[in-house]
Simulated scan of single mutants.
Amino acid sequence: MKKILIASHCMELGGAERSLLGILNAMDYHKYEVDLFLYRHTGELLKYIPKEVNLLPEDKQMSMLAIPFQNVIKKGQFSMALGRYRGKKKALQFNKENVNGKESMVMLDYSHKYTVPYVKKRIHKTYDLAISFLTPHYYVAEKIDAKVKLAWIHTDYSNYLLDIRSELQMWGKYDYIASISPKCTEGFLKVFPELKDKIVEISNINAENLIRRQAKDESAGDMNVESAEKCLCSIGRFAQAKNFDHVPRIAKKMLEKGMEFKWFLIGYGGEEALIRKQIKEQGMEDTVIILGKKDNPYPYIEKCDFYIQPSRYEGKAVTVLEAQMLGKPVIITAYPSSESQLEDGIDGVIVPMDDEGCAEGIVKVMGNLELCEKLIKNCKSRDYSNCKEVEKLYDLIRE
Protein backbone atom coordinates (compact mmCIF):
# COMPACT_ATOMS: atom_id res chain seq x y z
CA MET A 1 0.00 0.00 0.00
CA LYS A 2 1.11 3.54 -0.73
CA LYS A 3 1.90 5.59 2.38
CA ILE A 4 0.58 9.14 2.87
CA LEU A 5 1.26 11.56 5.72
CA ILE A 6 -0.91 14.60 6.36
CA ALA A 7 0.34 17.14 8.92
CA SER A 8 -1.78 19.96 10.33
CA HIS A 9 -2.10 22.08 13.47
CA CYS A 10 -5.20 20.71 15.24
CA MET A 11 -8.88 20.01 14.59
CA GLU A 12 -10.54 23.13 15.96
CA LEU A 13 -13.56 24.56 14.19
CA GLY A 14 -12.61 26.14 10.87
CA GLY A 15 -13.06 25.85 7.12
CA ALA A 16 -9.62 24.39 6.50
CA GLU A 17 -10.12 21.77 9.20
CA ARG A 18 -13.48 20.78 7.71
CA SER A 19 -11.82 20.55 4.30
CA LEU A 20 -9.23 18.22 5.85
CA LEU A 21 -12.08 16.05 7.13
CA GLY A 22 -13.41 16.00 3.57
CA ILE A 23 -10.10 14.66 2.27
CA LEU A 24 -9.88 12.04 5.01
CA ASN A 25 -13.41 10.87 4.28
CA ALA A 26 -12.71 10.63 0.53
CA MET A 27 -9.53 8.53 0.82
CA ASP A 28 -9.45 4.95 -0.48
CA TYR A 29 -8.12 3.05 2.54
CA HIS A 30 -7.89 -0.19 0.59
CA LYS A 31 -5.06 1.29 -1.46
CA TYR A 32 -3.57 3.97 0.79
CA GLU A 33 -2.24 3.92 4.32
CA VAL A 34 -2.84 7.35 5.84
CA ASP A 35 -1.03 8.77 8.88
CA LEU A 36 -2.35 12.03 10.36
CA PHE A 37 0.08 14.08 12.43
CA LEU A 38 -1.59 16.87 14.41
CA TYR A 39 0.67 19.26 16.29
CA ARG A 40 -1.99 19.43 19.01
CA HIS A 41 -4.66 16.85 19.75
CA THR A 42 -7.27 19.55 20.35
CA GLY A 43 -10.47 20.65 18.67
CA GLU A 44 -14.12 19.81 18.37
CA LEU A 45 -13.58 18.03 15.04
CA LEU A 46 -11.20 15.38 16.42
CA LYS A 47 -14.07 12.97 16.99
CA TYR A 48 -14.99 13.02 13.30
CA ILE A 49 -11.64 11.69 12.03
CA PRO A 50 -12.40 8.43 10.17
CA LYS A 51 -11.43 5.27 12.08
CA GLU A 52 -9.27 4.13 9.15
CA VAL A 53 -6.86 7.02 9.73
CA ASN A 54 -3.78 6.36 11.86
CA LEU A 55 -3.63 9.36 14.21
CA LEU A 56 0.01 9.65 15.27
CA PRO A 57 0.88 10.51 18.89
CA GLU A 58 1.13 14.19 19.80
CA ASP A 59 4.68 15.55 19.79
CA LYS A 60 5.49 17.46 22.98
CA GLN A 61 7.71 19.95 21.19
CA MET A 62 5.36 20.72 18.28
CA SER A 63 2.44 21.11 20.70
CA MET A 64 4.26 24.15 22.14
CA LEU A 65 3.69 26.28 19.05
CA ALA A 66 0.30 27.77 19.81
CA ILE A 67 -0.04 27.83 23.58
CA PRO A 68 0.68 30.74 25.95
CA PHE A 69 4.42 31.40 26.21
CA GLN A 70 4.47 31.01 30.00
CA ASN A 71 3.05 27.50 29.60
CA VAL A 72 5.98 26.56 27.38
CA ILE A 73 8.33 27.57 30.20
CA LYS A 74 6.26 25.72 32.83
CA LYS A 75 6.43 22.54 30.76
CA GLY A 76 10.23 22.79 30.64
CA GLN A 77 10.40 23.16 26.84
CA PHE A 78 13.19 25.73 26.97
CA SER A 79 14.51 25.23 23.43
CA MET A 80 11.01 25.80 22.05
CA ALA A 81 10.63 28.84 24.28
CA LEU A 82 13.90 30.21 22.91
CA GLY A 83 12.76 29.62 19.32
CA ARG A 84 9.45 31.30 19.93
CA TYR A 85 11.12 34.25 21.64
CA ARG A 86 13.55 34.72 18.75
CA GLY A 87 10.73 34.40 16.23
CA LYS A 88 8.54 36.95 17.98
CA LYS A 89 11.40 39.44 18.37
CA LYS A 90 12.36 39.20 14.69
CA ALA A 91 8.73 39.35 13.55
CA LEU A 92 8.08 42.54 15.54
CA GLN A 93 11.15 44.08 13.97
CA PHE A 94 10.12 43.01 10.45
CA ASN A 95 6.56 44.31 10.90
CA LYS A 96 7.86 47.65 12.17
CA GLU A 97 10.19 48.07 9.19
CA ASN A 98 7.68 46.92 6.54
CA VAL A 99 4.32 48.46 7.47
CA ASN A 100 1.99 48.43 4.44
CA GLY A 101 -1.50 48.39 5.97
CA LYS A 102 -2.01 44.68 5.35
CA GLU A 103 -2.57 42.02 7.99
CA SER A 104 0.80 40.45 8.83
CA MET A 105 1.47 36.70 8.64
CA VAL A 106 5.08 37.14 9.70
CA MET A 107 4.51 36.39 13.39
CA LEU A 108 2.94 33.04 12.51
CA ASP A 109 5.63 32.25 9.95
CA TYR A 110 8.51 33.04 12.30
CA SER A 111 6.95 31.15 15.21
CA HIS A 112 7.56 27.96 13.22
CA LYS A 113 10.67 29.02 11.35
CA TYR A 114 12.69 29.63 14.52
CA THR A 115 11.34 26.70 16.55
CA VAL A 116 11.17 23.76 14.13
CA PRO A 117 14.99 23.49 13.95
CA TYR A 118 14.91 22.54 17.66
CA VAL A 119 12.36 19.76 17.08
CA LYS A 120 13.74 16.24 17.25
CA LYS A 121 12.86 13.98 14.34
CA ARG A 122 10.49 11.32 15.66
CA ILE A 123 8.75 9.95 12.55
CA HIS A 124 11.28 7.51 11.08
CA LYS A 125 9.36 6.46 8.00
CA THR A 126 9.52 7.25 4.30
CA TYR A 127 6.22 8.26 2.74
CA ASP A 128 5.14 8.19 -0.88
CA LEU A 129 3.42 11.53 -0.29
CA ALA A 130 3.74 13.96 2.62
CA ILE A 131 1.22 16.81 2.85
CA SER A 132 1.59 19.94 4.97
CA PHE A 133 -2.00 21.11 5.15
CA LEU A 134 -1.71 24.47 6.95
CA THR A 135 1.01 27.08 6.80
CA PRO A 136 3.70 27.49 8.10
CA HIS A 137 5.10 24.48 6.29
CA TYR A 138 8.52 24.10 7.92
CA TYR A 139 7.88 20.85 9.80
CA VAL A 140 7.15 18.59 6.81
CA ALA A 141 9.81 20.36 4.77
CA GLU A 142 12.56 19.75 7.32
CA LYS A 143 11.55 16.76 9.48
CA ILE A 144 9.74 14.30 7.18
CA ASP A 145 11.15 11.90 4.59
CA ALA A 146 8.95 11.54 1.52
CA LYS A 147 9.26 10.86 -2.20
CA VAL A 148 6.84 13.71 -2.92
CA LYS A 149 6.03 16.70 -0.72
CA LEU A 150 2.95 18.91 -1.10
CA ALA A 151 2.08 22.14 0.74
CA TRP A 152 -1.40 23.69 0.76
CA ILE A 153 -2.61 27.26 0.38
CA HIS A 154 -6.09 28.19 1.62
CA THR A 155 -6.23 31.96 1.22
CA ASP A 156 -5.38 34.89 -1.03
CA TYR A 157 -1.76 35.70 -0.18
CA SER A 158 -1.88 39.07 -1.92
CA ASN A 159 -3.84 40.39 1.08
CA TYR A 160 -1.07 39.84 3.64
CA LEU A 161 2.23 41.31 4.73
CA LEU A 162 4.83 38.56 4.26
CA ASP A 163 8.56 38.04 4.50
CA ILE A 164 8.70 36.97 0.87
CA ARG A 165 12.34 35.89 0.89
CA SER A 166 11.80 33.71 3.95
CA GLU A 167 8.62 32.13 2.61
CA LEU A 168 10.19 31.44 -0.79
CA GLN A 169 12.80 29.29 0.94
CA MET A 170 10.03 27.38 2.72
CA TRP A 171 7.82 26.83 -0.34
CA GLY A 172 10.85 25.94 -2.44
CA LYS A 173 11.36 22.74 -0.44
CA TYR A 174 8.10 21.30 -1.79
CA ASP A 175 7.52 19.48 -5.06
CA TYR A 176 3.97 20.77 -5.39
CA ILE A 177 1.75 23.50 -3.94
CA ALA A 178 -2.01 22.84 -3.77
CA SER A 179 -4.31 25.82 -4.40
CA ILE A 180 -8.03 25.63 -3.68
CA SER A 181 -9.20 27.93 -6.51
CA PRO A 182 -7.99 29.83 -9.60
CA LYS A 183 -8.28 33.17 -7.77
CA CYS A 184 -6.34 31.75 -4.86
CA THR A 185 -3.64 30.74 -7.35
CA GLU A 186 -3.68 34.18 -8.95
CA GLY A 187 -3.21 35.93 -5.60
CA PHE A 188 -0.42 33.56 -4.60
CA LEU A 189 1.48 34.00 -7.87
CA LYS A 190 1.27 37.79 -7.60
CA VAL A 191 3.50 37.39 -4.57
CA PHE A 192 5.48 34.30 -5.61
CA PRO A 193 5.64 34.20 -9.45
CA GLU A 194 8.71 31.94 -9.23
CA LEU A 195 6.52 29.10 -7.92
CA LYS A 196 4.16 28.88 -10.89
CA ASP A 197 5.36 25.45 -12.02
CA LYS A 198 4.66 23.91 -8.60
CA ILE A 199 0.95 24.79 -8.51
CA VAL A 200 -1.74 22.11 -8.72
CA GLU A 201 -5.34 23.17 -8.14
CA ILE A 202 -7.36 20.94 -5.79
CA SER A 203 -10.81 22.17 -4.77
CA ASN A 204 -12.01 21.78 -1.19
CA ILE A 205 -13.50 18.34 -0.61
CA ASN A 206 -16.63 18.24 1.53
CA ALA A 207 -17.71 15.23 3.58
CA GLU A 208 -21.28 15.28 2.28
CA ASN A 209 -22.64 12.27 4.19
CA LEU A 210 -21.21 13.59 7.47
CA ILE A 211 -22.56 17.09 6.85
CA ARG A 212 -26.07 15.89 6.02
CA ARG A 213 -26.10 13.60 9.06
CA GLN A 214 -24.90 16.37 11.37
CA ALA A 215 -27.51 18.78 9.97
CA LYS A 216 -30.21 16.42 11.28
CA ASP A 217 -28.45 15.44 14.53
CA GLU A 218 -29.39 18.47 16.59
CA SER A 219 -31.76 21.41 16.62
CA ALA A 220 -30.88 25.10 16.36
CA GLY A 221 -33.10 26.06 19.26
CA ASP A 222 -31.31 29.32 20.01
CA MET A 223 -31.89 30.62 16.47
CA ASN A 224 -35.28 32.24 17.11
CA VAL A 225 -37.15 34.46 14.65
CA GLU A 226 -40.66 35.89 14.52
CA SER A 227 -43.05 34.57 11.87
CA ALA A 228 -42.63 37.64 9.66
CA GLU A 229 -38.83 37.67 9.92
CA LYS A 230 -36.32 36.04 7.60
CA CYS A 231 -33.46 34.11 9.20
CA LEU A 232 -29.94 34.97 8.02
CA CYS A 233 -26.82 33.07 9.04
CA SER A 234 -23.07 33.67 8.71
CA ILE A 235 -20.36 31.35 9.99
CA GLY A 236 -16.63 31.90 10.40
CA ARG A 237 -13.81 33.02 12.63
CA PHE A 238 -14.26 36.48 14.08
CA ALA A 239 -11.34 37.91 12.15
CA GLN A 240 -10.75 40.78 9.74
CA ALA A 241 -11.09 38.61 6.64
CA LYS A 242 -14.70 37.71 7.45
CA ASN A 243 -15.87 41.35 7.73
CA PHE A 244 -18.37 40.55 10.51
CA ASP A 245 -17.60 43.92 12.09
CA HIS A 246 -19.54 45.52 9.21
CA VAL A 247 -22.59 43.28 9.57
CA PRO A 248 -24.34 45.64 12.07
CA ARG A 249 -24.04 48.57 9.63
CA ILE A 250 -25.26 46.44 6.71
CA ALA A 251 -28.14 45.14 8.84
CA LYS A 252 -29.17 48.66 9.84
CA LYS A 253 -29.35 49.72 6.19
CA MET A 254 -31.44 46.63 5.40
CA LEU A 255 -33.91 47.53 8.16
CA GLU A 256 -34.15 51.06 6.75
CA LYS A 257 -35.17 49.49 3.43
CA GLY A 258 -38.09 47.77 5.16
CA MET A 259 -36.75 44.21 5.43
CA GLU A 260 -37.67 42.18 8.54
CA PHE A 261 -35.03 39.66 9.62
CA LYS A 262 -32.58 38.47 12.22
CA TRP A 263 -28.91 37.88 11.33
CA PHE A 264 -27.11 35.23 13.37
CA LEU A 265 -23.30 35.09 13.60
CA ILE A 266 -21.72 31.75 14.50
CA GLY A 267 -18.04 31.56 15.35
CA TYR A 268 -15.33 32.84 17.64
CA GLY A 269 -12.12 34.85 17.49
CA GLY A 270 -10.23 37.98 18.39
CA GLU A 271 -12.66 40.48 16.82
CA GLU A 272 -15.70 39.50 18.89
CA ALA A 273 -15.37 42.58 21.11
CA LEU A 274 -15.24 44.82 18.03
CA ILE A 275 -18.32 43.15 16.53
CA ARG A 276 -20.25 43.56 19.79
CA LYS A 277 -19.19 47.20 19.94
CA GLN A 278 -20.52 47.79 16.43
CA ILE A 279 -23.78 46.01 17.27
CA LYS A 280 -24.29 48.36 20.20
CA GLU A 281 -23.26 51.51 18.32
CA GLN A 282 -25.65 50.73 15.46
CA GLY A 283 -28.48 49.77 17.83
CA MET A 284 -28.70 46.29 16.33
CA GLU A 285 -28.92 44.27 19.56
CA ASP A 286 -32.27 42.75 18.54
CA THR A 287 -31.26 42.14 14.91
CA VAL A 288 -27.64 40.95 14.80
CA ILE A 289 -27.16 38.13 17.27
CA ILE A 290 -23.88 36.41 18.14
CA LEU A 291 -24.45 32.75 18.92
CA GLY A 292 -20.75 31.99 19.44
CA LYS A 293 -18.86 28.79 18.73
CA LYS A 294 -20.91 25.78 17.67
CA ASP A 295 -19.38 22.31 17.46
CA ASN A 296 -22.03 21.46 14.89
CA PRO A 297 -23.07 24.47 12.77
CA TYR A 298 -25.05 22.50 10.21
CA PRO A 299 -28.47 22.58 11.96
CA TYR A 300 -28.13 26.38 11.87
CA ILE A 301 -27.49 26.35 8.13
CA GLU A 302 -30.39 23.93 7.74
CA LYS A 303 -32.73 26.26 9.63
CA CYS A 304 -31.75 29.59 8.05
CA ASP A 305 -33.51 31.13 5.05
CA PHE A 306 -30.34 32.68 3.59
CA TYR A 307 -26.65 32.02 4.11
CA ILE A 308 -24.53 35.20 3.89
CA GLN A 309 -20.74 35.35 3.45
CA PRO A 310 -19.84 39.06 3.83
CA SER A 311 -16.05 38.54 3.64
CA ARG A 312 -13.35 41.00 2.69
CA TYR A 313 -11.34 38.14 1.18
CA GLU A 314 -11.36 34.36 1.00
CA GLY A 315 -9.50 31.51 -0.62
CA LYS A 316 -12.67 29.54 -1.19
CA ALA A 317 -15.11 29.58 1.71
CA VAL A 318 -15.97 26.04 2.82
CA THR A 319 -19.11 27.27 4.58
CA VAL A 320 -20.50 28.58 1.29
CA LEU A 321 -20.13 25.15 -0.32
CA GLU A 322 -21.72 23.54 2.73
CA ALA A 323 -24.70 25.91 2.58
CA GLN A 324 -25.11 25.18 -1.13
CA MET A 325 -24.92 21.46 -0.37
CA LEU A 326 -27.81 21.92 2.08
CA GLY A 327 -29.85 23.75 -0.58
CA LYS A 328 -29.71 27.30 0.77
CA PRO A 329 -29.78 30.56 -1.20
CA VAL A 330 -26.26 31.90 -0.76
CA ILE A 331 -25.25 35.56 -0.95
CA ILE A 332 -21.57 36.55 -0.90
CA THR A 333 -19.71 39.83 -1.23
CA ALA A 334 -17.53 40.58 -4.24
CA TYR A 335 -14.25 39.57 -2.65
CA PRO A 336 -11.44 38.89 -5.15
CA SER A 337 -12.07 35.14 -5.42
CA SER A 338 -15.90 35.39 -5.38
CA GLU A 339 -16.36 34.46 -9.04
CA SER A 340 -14.59 31.14 -8.46
CA GLN A 341 -16.81 30.52 -5.42
CA LEU A 342 -20.15 30.31 -7.26
CA GLU A 343 -22.02 31.13 -10.49
CA ASP A 344 -23.61 34.52 -9.93
CA GLY A 345 -27.38 34.28 -10.32
CA ILE A 346 -27.26 30.51 -10.78
CA ASP A 347 -26.29 28.88 -7.48
CA GLY A 348 -25.74 32.02 -5.46
CA VAL A 349 -25.52 35.78 -5.78
CA ILE A 350 -22.55 38.15 -5.54
CA VAL A 351 -23.29 41.57 -4.05
CA PRO A 352 -21.06 44.66 -3.71
CA MET A 353 -18.53 44.86 -0.87
CA ASP A 354 -19.49 48.33 0.42
CA ASP A 355 -22.12 48.45 3.16
CA GLU A 356 -24.80 50.24 1.13
CA GLY A 357 -24.34 48.07 -1.96
CA CYS A 358 -24.21 44.93 0.14
CA ALA A 359 -27.42 45.82 1.99
CA GLU A 360 -29.23 46.72 -1.22
CA GLY A 361 -28.06 43.52 -2.91
CA ILE A 362 -29.16 41.26 -0.05
CA VAL A 363 -32.58 42.96 0.15
CA LYS A 364 -33.12 42.49 -3.60
CA VAL A 365 -32.36 38.77 -3.39
CA MET A 366 -34.53 38.30 -0.31
CA GLY A 367 -37.43 39.99 -2.07
CA ASN A 368 -37.15 37.98 -5.30
CA LEU A 369 -39.02 34.72 -4.68
CA GLU A 370 -38.47 33.44 -8.22
CA LEU A 371 -34.69 33.92 -7.94
CA CYS A 372 -34.60 32.27 -4.51
CA GLU A 373 -36.45 29.21 -5.81
CA LYS A 374 -34.02 29.03 -8.73
CA LEU A 375 -30.99 29.17 -6.42
CA ILE A 376 -32.41 26.45 -4.17
CA LYS A 377 -33.28 24.18 -7.11
CA ASN A 378 -29.85 24.55 -8.70
CA CYS A 379 -28.03 23.93 -5.43
CA LYS A 380 -30.02 20.78 -4.75
CA SER A 381 -29.25 19.43 -8.22
CA ARG A 382 -25.46 19.90 -7.99
CA ASP A 383 -22.67 17.89 -6.39
CA TYR A 384 -20.65 20.07 -4.01
CA SER A 385 -18.71 17.25 -2.39
CA ASN A 386 -15.85 17.46 -4.93
CA CYS A 387 -14.85 13.97 -3.78
CA LYS A 388 -13.19 13.20 -7.12
CA GLU A 389 -10.57 15.86 -6.34
CA VAL A 390 -8.80 13.28 -4.15
CA GLU A 391 -7.69 11.60 -7.38
CA LYS A 392 -5.34 14.53 -7.93
CA LEU A 393 -3.44 13.49 -4.79
CA TYR A 394 -3.16 9.94 -6.08
CA ASP A 395 -1.88 11.30 -9.40
CA LEU A 396 1.05 12.98 -7.62
CA ILE A 397 2.12 9.59 -6.29
CA ARG A 398 1.66 7.89 -9.65
CA GLU A 399 3.79 10.52 -11.37
Rank of each mutant, 00 (worst) to 15 (best):
R382A: 07
K89F: 07
V351T: 10
K257W: 01
T126Q: 08
S337M: 02
R165C: 04
H137A: 05
N386R: 15
Y174W: 13
S63Q: 09
Q70Y: 13
K374D: 08
V320E: 00
S381I: 02
A228T: 10
E260P: 07
G172Y: 06
N71C: 05
K183E: 01
V99M: 15
L255S: 11
K303C: 00
N206I: 15
C372F: 04
K316E: 06
I279R: 15
K392H: 12
E302M: 03
N204I: 03
M254R: 06
D383L: 03
Y114W: 13
I67V: 15
S385K: 08
M27Q: 12
N206S: 13
I164P: 07
I202P: 01
L396W: 01
A215I: 03
L24Y: 04
L189F: 01
G76A: 12
L129K: 08
A273I: 14
N386D: 12
D245M: 07
A178S: 15
K328N: 10
K230G: 01
L92Q: 14
L265T: 08
K121M: 07
A7E: 14
Q278G: 00
S166P: 01
K328S: 03
S381D: 09
E360A: 06
S179C: 13
C358A: 05
P336Q: 00
K253G: 00
E322V: 12
D145P: 04
D156T: 13
L210F: 05
N243Y: 02
V351F: 11
E52Q: 15
H124L: 09
I123Y: 00
E194N: 14
I290F: 06
N95V: 09
K173A: 03
Y139P: 03
V318H: 10
K183R: 04
L36M: 08
I199R: 11
S311F: 01
I4P: 11
K377W: 06
Q70E: 04
E370L: 11
M105F: 10
I376Y: 00
L5K: 11
R213Q: 12
K89H: 13
K364T: 06
K88M: 12
F238L: 14
Y335A: 05
L393V: 14
N25E: 14
G327Q: 14
K252N: 12
K75P: 05
I144D: 13
G269H: 04
D197I: 10
R18Q: 10
G267F: 09
N100W: 08
I164Y: 13
D305V: 02
E322W: 12
R165M: 10
S227H: 06
P310W: 09
G172F: 03
E391M: 04
L5Y: 13
S203L: 13
Q324W: 03
N204Y: 02
E339P: 01
E103I: 10
V318C: 14
